[in-house]
Structures are given as structure tokens and as C-alpha cells.
């Protein structure tokens, strides 16, 4: 399974536009970490985005596109700072921690 994280918008939108998406390849992870990632992806896939408290009023918030590619299936998850579900937030946090280790 390959998981790609792209970040959009925010105060640093001009920089985010130029940074390439970052990739975590589950096959390169230790078994325990790969299992965690699979579980987080599964939870995030089925968790709907939260309802935005003030629709259209957020400014400089960031949004995230997480693309999951596996044998026989793929999924694209897109949520933002003001709408992300707890499951999406958990996956995002996990990815950011993992990517920071690289």
C-alpha cells in the first residue's frame, strides 16, 4: 500500500503549491507500523468529514489530499483543518510524524 499526502492552502500557500506530495510506502515500513497505517486508513476511509461550523468563513485554513493506492483498489480522501474527522486527523498526524522521521 502506498499513501500520498498533499497539502494545500494556508498562510504558506505559495510554498505548498511548490512542494511535491510526500509518500509513505507501507512495504518499506516495519510490520507494526504498516499494520497501524492500514488500520488508520481503513478508519479514515469510512469517516465522513465533520460539518463546518461556519461554512465558507475559514481563511488561510489548509486542506489535505491523502491518496491511498493498494492492489485492486485506491481511494482519495480530502478534508480540511476545519472539517476533518477524528479518524482523518489521526491518519494525518501519523503520516506527518512518519514523514518527519525521514
Amino acid at each position: 500500500m502506498k499513501v500520498t499526502l498533499a497539502t494545500h492552502g494556508g498562510q504558506a500557500a505559495a510554498i505548498n503549491l511548490r512542494l511535491p506530495p510526500r509518500v509513505v510506502d507501507a512495504e518499506a515500513l516495519p510490520e507494526q507500523a504498516a499494520r497501524e497505517l492500514a488500520e488508520l486508513v481503513e478508519a479514515a476511509k469510512t469517516a465522513p468529514a465533520a460539518k463546518e461550523r461556519r461554512p465558507g468563513q475559514a481563511r488561510d485554513a489548509m486542506s489535505y489530499t491523502i491518496t491511498v493506492e493498494d492492489v485492486g483498489w485506491s481511494a482519495v480522501l480530502n478534508q480540511s483543518d476545519t472539517t476533518m474527522s477524528p479518524a482523518f486527523a489521526a491518519l494525518l498526524t501519523w503520516l506527518q510524524r512518519r514523514l518527519a522521521m525521514e
Binding site: D60, A61, T82, T93, Q96
Partner: peptide, 29 residues
């Protein structure tokens, strides 16, 4: 201290939110 290594500050329509930065590119907003 919003999020983990959060590289941003934003206005949600009512409040201000600040990240700590990832320590690699960005620092505390």
C-alpha cells in the same frame, strides 16, 4: 499548539488558530 508540526495559522471565522511549525521549515507561528 494546534495539531502536530502544524505549519500554519488560520482564522476559522470566529477564532485564531496557531501551529507550532514542523521545526524543519517553519517555527511557531
Amino acid at each position: 499548539h494546534f495539531g502536530t508540526r502544524y505549519n500554519n495559522a488560520f482564522w476559522d471565522g470566529q477564532e485564531m488558530v496557531f501551529g507550532d511549525g514542523d521545526g524543519r521549515i517553519f517555527t511557531d507561528f
